[in-house]
Design a protein around this nucleic acid. Structure first.
Length: 945
RNA sequence: GCCGAAGUGGCGGAAUUGGUAGACGCGCUGGACUCAAAAUCCAGUCUGGCUCACACCAGGUGCCGGUUCGAGUCCGGCCUUCGGUACCA
């Protein structure tokens, strides 16, 4: 067993023990084997008293093995969990693999190795690494998301969402990566507009996509944050992401038309300052407003007034008219213009936007019989003729120009990525539509513009612009010479542009003098009275886009039938298995399209030839509920074991990277609440406590395979063993701060381990036949014993508090201090020595489990630490020292320290202070003005001359 | 731009409610052991001044100012770095 290094000349009996290094390569596997054989980490889930579910974010096997970041996540968290186990908790600590996703597929595209094969192989390698870490994982609970037994339940979940209307399809502009040939979520597009995974610039593309309706839970997701113990930073990020804002919806009438424009504003109090309106370029009203302008010039009077109301309704609802996709009014004008006016077909087609279709064809589709019943009256025709002349002179061309301009601007906007479009540094752009709206508070006409700074995806896609109180509007108004009216009085010294602060309302009629909040309330009530507006809450949160045009994911359990439309796969037919044979190289369409056996199915409803949905789900669906599944990954007739879940969920401690602060952690909360609402779970939130480990960088850069700067943990575990490596990672600094990787200090933790091992070797079998008491009377101990007895008890207290709060660096420092003091163990009785060593070993077992088990055994214990977890509570009496150092200050400056019995009263301290030479030097000749005494801490004398 | 976090020796980092700044570790310097090296052990290590030395004195926690007997910690104003976010009406 002794392990001899170096040359033969070192083989001396005495020397042997002294230089024997800690043989981690023998001892670590020995204990891992022991733990596994004794099934120490198999959690008895039926025992729920003192239950503790300790979870780490499962592994995303991205083609690479474990890196330092994984170790930094998992090692310290396991130490916390071990500490809890020692304290008597029934700890459940599972691990698994988030095995679907892009990296495996990208790897396949590059190498030709099938994602399934590479993932399975990779998991096998990772499992070996994980086992070598020596965490308390319950391997019976291991799961991987790419197994049909798992993703079947993603599909089940999808169907439940679908049934409730929470899964739906819509056509939406999405981020498209031309390189990966896939849709990206907003969160996957980096700030410079490139793809998170490959760095290619992202473009916009319209596709029909599946969404989960997370927005229905917006309010609850927001409120729930108050009930969970998460880092404030993370909660704030979620709050911002949800982006609740309170305000009002206000209806603006358009000038001379029936079209109303609905806007959302958080500042209804500034309505009097609305000097123009802006619509998002994609706003459906944009086209109508331009058309209206032209048709209005064609006919100065409303045609509808010429036609009896009942007739108009009848005609408008006629099927043939509906097919023509224009209003009856417009059709009638086209008909009249074509029939009675000398207009060329081309002109008409431009005016009425009949792209590609000749006007004659169009006219032919109009059921003349109906129209002929409504012959235009002569004077009406005259009015059209007059207007047409006017139109022909100038306006017609102007408006065609505007229409071109607007259409040009619209295409330009579509081409821009979301990032370009919303970049705040960019100068404002926009086009005047020539149409006007009426400000409802003062009936003033205000121009309607379109501009890309207004987004169709937020609010109503239209705003009232109040340049006086909004920076963006101010900037826009300045550029396009639009009027600016202040409606809040800025303070006198205000020299900025838009004023966003509070102040009395001005230029606002009945609101004048009110502060912002009061004005808001008053105007909202006014709007509600007049039925032209109402109180409204808006959220920034958008629905969760879950479809991916990718292979390596969960197939969406929907069949598209030409007759029945979308048909959900029946639950009994789940899982829809992901076929092995596909062409996963990018082709622009979903790879699953290439497997005809998969794609072609019979419609479950009518039996007709139908096609499966070829998209797969976002992997965030997999990770949104996996913590339920761990409790019983084998269960096959339900998504998870509800009985166990009701007792074990919520997760007590969840540890993972801050990069998941919004997406994963918000989606998981959403799915949890949904599962609750369909009766699957009884809790509101998935994770009670959350902690983020910091990021370990390499020379200031994030470690990544592409940068080729990944530090391999195996290099260190091979050289020092996994305990030393774990200790070092924990000792580096505050856990949530992370830091730049450097192996400079690892020698320090290695030395600590060596010296600890040496110490226990020196007192081999010390506990055999020795029984220690749980407490000793300090007076019965000699000076040296007393010192160590105090130290060990103080360490127990300190160490516990630090580990409890994930402050591993200071916890380990306290153990190092204890070890340093233990140099004088020789001068203790064996009983006290054992008392100290057994406590030291137990503390150590949380942070260096292999080593501690070995030390515990060396001490002569029969059962291993984790076989029979113990925790020694500190002896409170030993925490207090006999004597304390009291700092003596003169005018707040330290001048001396004096050692006095603990809790000495002011009189005692004072007399000591005033007999201290160093102090007297400063006091002599000066007047003592004041004396401040803090028990056991300081004595401060304030003097003046 | 906005939101958040952090700036402490040569380095990683410690410092209860404001109460002896620099715990613990690395590195470095000197010494012991050794033929020598490695390993290990012992001592020292914030900066400057003065001293043979012990001691002592002055300064010191990103910068400027304030509150206080006393500020790394609290307040006001900046600077830098790192995260998050990107016109959300």
């Amino acid at each position: 067993m002794p392990f001899i290094l170096g040359k033969f000349s070192f083989i001396f009996k005495e020397f042997r023990i002294k230089i024997m290094r800690y043989p981690f390569a023998e001892i670590e596997p020995k204990w891992r084997k022991f733990w596994e054989e004794k099934e120490i980490y198999k959690t008895d889930l039926s025992k729920t008293e003192n239950k503790l579910y300790s979870l780490v974010m499962f592994i995303y096997p991205s083609g690479a093995k474990l890196h330092i970041g994984h170790w930094y996540n998992y090692g310290p968290n396991d130490s916390w969990a071990r500490y809890k186990k020692l304290k008597g908790f029934n700890v459940f600590e599972p691990i698994g693999y988030d095995a679907f996703g892009l990296p495996a597929e990208n790897y396949a595209i590059k190498t030709g190795i099938h994602p399934y094969d590479s993932t399975i192989k990779n998991i096998e390698d990772i499992r070996v690494q994980l086992k070598n870490m020596g965490c308390m994982y319950d391997w019976d609970a291991e799961l991987m998301t790419c197994a049909p037994e798992y993703y079947k339940w993603n599909q089940w979940l999808f169907l439940q969402l679908y049934k409730k209307g929470f899964a739906y399809r819509k056509n939406a502009p999405v981020n498209w990566c031309p390189n990966d040939q896939t849709v990206l979520a907003n969160e996957q597009v980096q700030s410079d507009g490139t793809c998170e995974r490959c760095g290619t610039p992202v473009i916009q593309k319209n596709l029909t996509q599946w969404f989960f309706k997370i927005t229905d839970y917006a309010e609850e997701l927001l409120e729930g944050l108050d009930k969970i113990n998460w880092p404030e930073k993370t909660k704030l990020m979620q709050r911002n992401w949800i982006g609740k804002s309170e305000g009002a919806e206000v209806i603006f009438k358009t000038d001379g038309r029936d079209k109303d424009i609905k806007i959302f504003t958080t500042r209804p109090d500034t309505l009097f300052g609305a000097t123009y309106m802006v619509l998002a370029p994609e706003h459906p009203l944009v086209d109508k407003l331009i058309m209206d302008k032209i048709t209005r010039l064609l006919t100065s009077k409303k045609i509808s007034t010429k036609i009896p109301k009942n007739k108009l309704n009848e005609l408008s609802s006629d099927k043939t008219f509906k097919k023509l996709k224009k209003s009856f009014e417009e059709i009638y004008i086209i008909y009249l213009a074509y029939t009675y006016l000398p207009l060329t077909k081309k002109r008409l087609s431009i005016i009425f936007d009949l792209s590609g279709e000749s006007v004659r064809n169009y006219i032919n589709k109009i059921p003349k019989k109906l129209l002929l019943e409504l012959p235009p009256k002569p004077n009406y025709m005259q009015s059209i003729r007059n207007n047409w002349r006017e139109l022909d002179d100038y306006s017609y061309y102007d408006h065609l120009k505007i229409k071109d301009k607007i259409n040009g601007y619209k295409t330009e906007t579509q081409r821009k990525s979301e990032i370009d479009r919303t970049s705040t540094v960019k100068e404002k752009t926009g086009v005047n539509t020539g149409a006007f709206a009426i400000n409802p508070v003062n009936n003033k006409k205000i121009p309607i513009w379109i501009a890309d700074y207004v987004l169709m995806t937020y609010g109503t896609g239209a705003i009232m612009a109040v340049p006086g109180q909004d920076e963006r509007d101010w900037e826009f108004a300045e550029k396009f010479n639009l009027p600016i009216i202040r409606t809040v009085q800025p303070p006198e010294n205000f020299d900025g542009k838009a004023f966003l602060g509070d102040g009395p309302a001005i230029n606002s009629d009945f609101l004048n003098g009110l502060n912002v909040n009061d004005a808001k309330q008053k105007i909202i009530n006014w709007l509600e009275d007049k039925r032209i507006g109402k109180r409204k809450i808006n959220y920034r949160l958008r629905d969760w886009l879950i479809s991916r045009q990718r292979y390596w994911g969960t197939p969406i359990p929907i069949i598209h039938c030409p007759k029945c439309g979308e048909v959900p796969v029946e639950e009994k037919d789940l899982p829809v298995e992901l076929p092995y044979d596909v062409e996963f190289r990018p082709s622009g369409e979903s790879p699953l399209q290439s497997n005809k056996d998969f794609i072609n199915v019979k419609c479950p409803k009518c039996g007709a030839d139908a096609k499966r949905d070829a998209d797969t789900m976002d992997t965030f669906v997999d990770s949104a509920w996996y913590y339920f599944r761990y409790l019983n990954p084998e269960i096959n007739d339900t998504i998870f074991d509800k009985k166990l879940a009701d007792k074990w969920i919520p997760v007590d401690m969840y540890v993972g990277g801050a990069e998941h602060a919004v997406m994963h952690l918000l989606y998981a909360r959403f799915i949890h609440k949904f599962l609750r609402d369909i009766g699957q779970t009884n809790s509101d939130e998935p994770f009670t406590n959350l902690i983020h480990q910091g990021t370990i960088t390499n020379q200031g850069n994030k470690m990544s395979k592409s940068k080729n700067n990944v530090v391999n943990p195996d290099d260190f575990t091979d050289k020092y063993g996994s305990d030393v490596f774990r200790l070092y990672l924990m000792f580096m600094g505050p856990y949530d701060l992370g830091g730049d990787w450097s192996d400079k200090g690892i020698a320090g933790t290695d030395r600590f381990v060596q010296r600890t091992y040496e110490l226990f070797n020196k007192f081999n079998d010390a506990s055999k036949g020795t029984n220690t008491k749980s407490k000793y009377d300090l007076n019965s101990l000699n000076e040296n014993e007393k010192k160590l007895y105090r130290k060990v008890n103080q360490t127990i207290k300190k160490f516990g508090e630090e580990i409890e709060n994930f402050r591993f660096n200071t916890a380990i420092a306290s153990l190092m201090e204890l070890l340093n003091e233990n140099k004088s163990l020789d001068e203790c009785s064996n009983e006290i020595r054992v008392y100290i060593l057994e406590r030291f070993a137990v503390l150590l077992s949380a942070v260096a489990p292999h080593l501690a088990e070995e030390c515990w055994q060396l001490l002569g214990k029969d059962k291993s630490v984790f076989e029979n977890p113990v925790w020694y509570e500190e002896d409170v009496a030993a925490l207090i020292e006999d004597k304390v150092n009291i700092a003596v200050q003169i005018n707040g400056k330290l001048r001396s320290t004096i050692k006095l019995p603990v809790d000495a009263d002011q009189q005692t301290v004072k007399s000591a202070v005033f007999s201290d030479e160093k102090v007297l030097k400063y006091i002599n000749g000066n007047k003592v003005v004041k004396e401040i005494f803090v028990k056991n801490k300081i004595y401060n004398v304030v003097v003046s001359n």
